[in-house]
Computed example of a mutant assay.
Amino acid sequence: MEYEGQICRSPMERGSFSLPVTVGCCYNRCYFCDLFKHLRYRELPLEQVEAELRRVSGMGADPKTVFLGDGSAFNLSSERLTRILAMIHKYFPSCRSVNMDATVPSILSKTPDELRALSENGVRRLYLGIETGLDDVLTLMNKCHTQKQAYEAAEALQRAGITYDAHMMTGVAGRGRGTENAGALAEFYNKTRPGRITNFSLFIHKETPLYDMVRRGEFSPADELENLEEERALIERLEVPAAYDGIHDFVPFRLRGDLPSEKESMLRKLDAAITAQRKKPQVFAVA
């Protein structure tokens, strides 16, 4: 398989077949992200997409789940997505689920009829970056949507029968605002009911605009202790049934479980991690 750039997908898609249909991210202006800065966004030719499907099918593969890459494949027009879905079902007759990353604007750009048609043709899950529940933080991070628009997108997907999974980042609101952000996120998730929540705790890379904001004193990062405390505040407030996966780069801790059935055990693990971290020097996920 030819894949330009690095493969970026949710850990929930580790068993899926990755099919590139675009290169890069259609937005690519979030201040915290460096994943696609070196790439020029473009749609791959349908002939190239079909050639890859034909190659894999010819090897005897028939995956049940396909993940469309790259960073925001749902930005493709409904017509183009429908053509790709038809090809997937032609070469992979056992496929029952086609998933991909999406942006809020890419959802809102499609009509209710288009969303329903995509659902009927196999689109099952969209991964949405709902990193924060605070509008001022969305603005600070130069996200491409408001909280109101995020609610509208989640509602549109629900009506179409498409599940959305949320990507979030503890620490994104900055020092001293972890509990506030946890409360706002819990409120959003409890109302919109994502199927899964993945926490990629904020890592500030030196090649991002956010790193420059830290250097200029325009953003004060939370340390990893506060990130763990924010994660605990979120889990404690969540009422929605969802799978949760929390990943931290700078502390040796990962939290996974099903809500609400495993909430108490998850809170105990967080309490232990927080107690241990309080005994250590401050650690900031900045490099």
Rank of each mutant, 00 (worst) to 15 (best):
I204R: 05
E4Q: 14
F32R: 09
Q277P: 03
R116F: 13
P45D: 11
P209G: 11
T208E: 05
D101L: 06
V251T: 06
R232P: 00
P105Y: 14
P241E: 01
K90G: 02
D136M: 04
V286D: 00
E264C: 03
E43F: 05
V123Q: 05
F32L: 14
E262P: 06
L210R: 04
I204E: 08
E236C: 05
R215Q: 15
E224A: 01
D101E: 10
A154Q: 03
T179A: 14
E180K: 02
R196C: 13
H248P: 01
A276I: 00
C25K: 11
T139S: 10
E120C: 06
E207C: 07
D113Q: 15
A153I: 03
T208K: 05
S94I: 02
R29M: 04
L267I: 14
C33W: 05
R215Y: 02
N181A: 00
H89W: 14
A86C: 07
L19Q: 09
D113W: 12
F200Q: 13
L202S: 08
A273K: 13
Y164R: 02
S78R: 07
F32T: 13
N199Q: 09
I274D: 05
T275K: 12
K143G: 03
A276F: 02
K148P: 00
A243G: 14
V49Y: 06
T22H: 03
L138T: 10
R159L: 12
A173H: 04
G69P: 03
P194A: 08
R175V: 03
M169Y: 01
Y27W: 14
R237N: 05
H89D: 13
T22Y: 00
L134K: 13
Q6C: 01
V23F: 02
V21G: 13
I107G: 07
I274M: 01
L85F: 11
E4G: 00
L115H: 09
S106I: 07
P194D: 03
V23Q: 07
L35C: 05
P93G: 11
L81S: 03
C25E: 10
H205W: 13
